[in-house]
């Protein structure tokens, strides 16, 4: 199996003014292609920071992150944009939907930047919404949808480009147990279809669905349980 993600001694220090916060203090880990990994850890331990680096939304202040063998710190802004667009589907902790646009327009957004033709975009966006069980809600705006439905729109947006890597930051955090189950079923399905799936969760039953659990504490991998 080829290694899709390789983190080597990754550090991230946030500095606001003279205040410095070490969110990640040397993470070394790898995730193989097609793996289903759950990331757990207390609040403020650096899980979101790690996810953002993996998703090329942020850059580490130390160490290296290689994505399919390429050091992302060597990539230009435009190349990173393309990686985010073509290879990664990110499900944010908040839903991050544009409130003025109907569900299908939110879902087609990555395809706009991928240069896909308009009709094709609409077709694929609706197909993705059908896949998450929202075929009858394509024209609804986020405000007209429940939390679980909004999260499913966000998942549809993450998979519409058919990316190899799906990253999700607490995708069930704001959901009731039924919606949670729906969303988790979706990730299981994505994993079965061969994608690499990585998600952050607090809930043990969510983590149980994954092949592997990585525990983070104070910006470090918790060695007591790490495999």
């Amino acid at each position: 199996m080829t290694t899709t993600l390789q983190l080597t001694d990754v550090r991230k220090t946030y500095s606001s003014g003279h205040l410095e916060v070490e969110a990640l203090r040397g993470i070394t880990m790898s995730v193989d292609e097609g793996e289903y990994v759950a990331v757990m850890g207390p609040s403020g331990s650096g899980k979101s920071t790690l996810m953002h680096i993996l998703g090329c939304l942020d850059v580490p202040t130390g160490g290296t992150y290689e994505l399919a063998g390429t050091d992302v710190s060597r990539m230009t802004e435009a190349e990173l944009a393309e990686v985010r667009n073509r290879r990664i589907g990110f499900v944010f902790q908040g839903f991050n939907l544009l409130p003025s646009m109907p569900a299908w327009r939110n879902v087609e957004l990555p395809l706009v930047y991928a240069g896909v033709h308009r009709d094709e975009r609409r077709r694929r966006a609706i197909a993705a919404l059908e896949k998450v069980g929202l075929g009858d809600r394509v024209a609804h705006r986020p405000g007209e949808l429940s939390g679980g439905q909004q999260q499913r729109v966000a998942v549809a947006r993450a998979l519409v480009t058919d990316p190899a890597l799906i990253l999700a930051d607490e995708p069930t955090g704001n959901l009731d147990s039924r919606s949670s189950a729906d969303v988790l079923a979706l990730f299981a399905e994505l994993h079965e279809s061969g994608r690499t799936v990585m998600l952050i969760t607090h809930e043990p039953e969510v983590a149980a669905a994954a092949q592997r659990v990585v525990r983070i504490r104070d910006g470090l991998i918790d060695q007591r349980v790490a495999a």
């Binding site: 802004e77 435009a78 944009a81 393309e82 990555p110 930047y113 947006r157 480009t161």
Partner: peptide, 14 residues
């Protein structure tokens, strides 16, 4: 909105 668009693949020039 800008951040989201960039996260979804908008290049700086776009």
């Amino acid at each position: 909105e800008i951040g989201l668009r960039k996260a979804l693949g908008a290049t700086p020039s776009a």
